[in-house]
Design a protein around this nucleic acid. Structure first.
Lengths: 151, 151
DNA sequence: ACTATATTGTACGCATTCGTACTAAATACG
DNA sequence: CGTATTTAGTACGAATGCGTACAATATAGT
């Protein structure tokens, strides 16, 4: 017999609530380290690289370029990154960590993962992997239905 | 033998990516209906009620009160809600849908769920429920580690 | 009754986020 | 060679989102 539809609502709600709980937990720690979440995202992305274009950073962090400009402005103002003109492509800018940014990256990155680790460890290896697989399924289903992004 | 730690990273990344994919998919549809996501959230929360306080709306929508004030301002400006003084508690405000807000709720709410349904249907009932349970586990683990919210 | 405390909502500043428009530079095409 | 299109980044406005401070009201403790 067919059901009423909308049986997915509890799962939808749980996805939203869980993500928001994760985001609150993660952001609170990052903020105590003196950064915002997007700023941490950029620092973590640039860590252990020789610099990247805004386009590459945007693809890694899922920020659109308009958003990225402001985040990079504030990181540059704090002296954590520097913008250099690209050697071969005159349209592009190379963004790298400054020495102070490198220092911060080393201090903060593993500290943050260590902060998160025990939370996920509660699940155990099996459920952790099952959760990842189901999330991946859902994401692929979402991406199949979506229009390609404009960036 | 102990592992290197940080085996949770793929699951963490998948949680973030999947939520962002869901949010993009959902927001795009809501925007086509003339609302923002938080505005839709409030309209959906107030639908089929006789009005709620800002505090109640905040608990349902997971918005802090400072954010809610601005969202309600814009909904009031569009004529979709009205703010009435609370009969018994002078500190509180009763927020209700206006007739136009009721109309919008009826038109938009089920349309949005119908838009989302096929995406989640891809998973099938079993994985859908497993996913919900694992997300719930993770959320409870997060909430155990978090400080209680300031609101 | 009186005072200390807690609760409700608003005001404000800072940072993000997206969409759109714009400039500059590189590439494709005729 | 010259123009059209594409690409990279910035500029700007509207709308969240959070933290803090604040005014008005309610409640608790004495």
């Amino acid at each position: 017999m067919p059901t009423t539809g909308f049986e997915f609502l509890p799962t939808l709600r749980e996805l939203v609530r869980t993500y928001q709980a994760f985001d609150a937990f993660s952001s609170a720690h990052i903020r105590r380290l003196g950064l915002t979440s997007p700023q941490f995202d950029v620092i973590a992305t640039l860590g252990n690289t020789q610099g990247m274009s805004c386009r590459d950073i945007g693809q890694k962090t899922l920020m659109v370029k308009g958003t990225l400009t402001g985040v990079l402005d504030r990181l540059e103002q704090k002296g954590l990154i520097s913008r250099i003109s690209h050697p071969t492509d005159g349209r592009s800018t190379l963004v790298r960590l400054s020495p102070a940014g490198e220092d911060l990256f080393v201090r903060v990155f593993s500290a943050h993962l260590t902060h998160l680790e025990p939370v996920f460890a509660q699940l155990g290896p099996g459920p952790l992997e099952t959760l990842r697989q189901h999330l991946e399924l859902l994401r692929h289903s979402l991406e199949k239905q979506s229009a390609p992004p404009s960036d």
